[in-house]
């Protein structure tokens, strides 16, 4: 049986990298005595898959990973057991049972919502809000995407599903995060492109980024229907 776990990662925990978080949860699952499924062999490991790795320095209120379990009582009990063994800064927000035909966590990721604010005194310019609005309203937004293998010229406009400047002067971005093709757009890249267009030097440190949630797509390529990744499961 496949179970999806939603958690938040905040405060000092933002300095813990993705691989260390995986190790953290493997140990937490053991501490919580969850009847997780293991692979066989000399070094058995838990059947576990993370949705979308979060970079060091980012906080999140919508992280997901899937595990396989052999047995359980209720999803609520599993959530409580896990919350009793995590550290401050990690909170299990939801545990749900996935349908048998659910896709794997990583392939299911379609989009992510972020809140971005500038550190004090590090705003790009006084009128950045209106300039950023014009930037987002362009017909196309050409950008350079650097991957391990190549440097690509892409248009990020189709991947910018929503944007908004919130009353507290932070930016909300709802971005394509699918792992296929050039889909996955990181929020820092959008801001970097904006800075470049304005001719301002970009230091990624100027941003405080929180991933608000991660979504899967229940619609089609033409008519998306994004829902938080835990909504495909049931909380029995």
């Amino acid at each position: 049986m496949k179970v999806r776990i939603k958690f938040s990662k905040t405060g000092p925990l933002k300095f813990i990298g993705h691989l260390d978080m995986m190790r953290f949860f493997q140990k937490a699952i053991r501490r919580a005595d969850i009847d997780v499924t293991y692979t066989t062999g000399f070094s058995p490991h838990q059947v576990m898959a993370f949705a979308n790795p979060l970079g060091v320095g980012l906080e999140s209120t919508g992280e997901y990973f899937d595990i396989e379990v052999n047995s359980y009582t209720t999803m609520a009990e599993m959530k409580d057991k896990l919350n009793q063994v995590v550290v401050p800064g990690v909170e299990i927000l939801d545990v749900c049972l996935l349908p048998d035909d659910a896709g794997n966590a990583m392939a299911s990721v379609a989009a992510a919502r972020y809140r971005i604010s500038f550190r004090e005194g590090m705003e790009p310019c006084a009128d950045w809000e209106s300039r950023f609005a014009s930037f987002c309203e362009q017909e196309t937004i050409p950008a350079t995407k650097t991957t391990k293998k190549s440097v690509l010229e892409i248009d990020i406009k189709p991947s910018l599903y929503e944007w908004q400047i919130l009353p507290d002067h932070s930016i909300m971005l709802f971005l394509n995060a699918s792992s296929s093709g050039t889909g996955n757009i990181k929020p820092a890249m959008v801001l970097e492109t904006f800075f470049k267009a304005e001719g301002i030097e970009f230091d990624p440190y100027c941003l405080c980024i929180t991933r608000i949630d991660t979504y899967t797509d229940l619609g089609t390529e033409d008519a998306h229907r994004f829902v938080p990744m835990n909504e495909v499961g049931t909380s029995c």
Binding site: G11, L13, F15, D20, F24, V85, V87, Y205
Partner: peptide
Amino acid sequence: QNTTQKLALTDDILLAIEKPARYIGNEV
């Protein structure tokens, strides 16, 4: 509750150094 938890080192330092997990405590 933890976003207010105090760290001796500021974000700019922790993001610039190797393995910041060495310095933030908070372990199980």
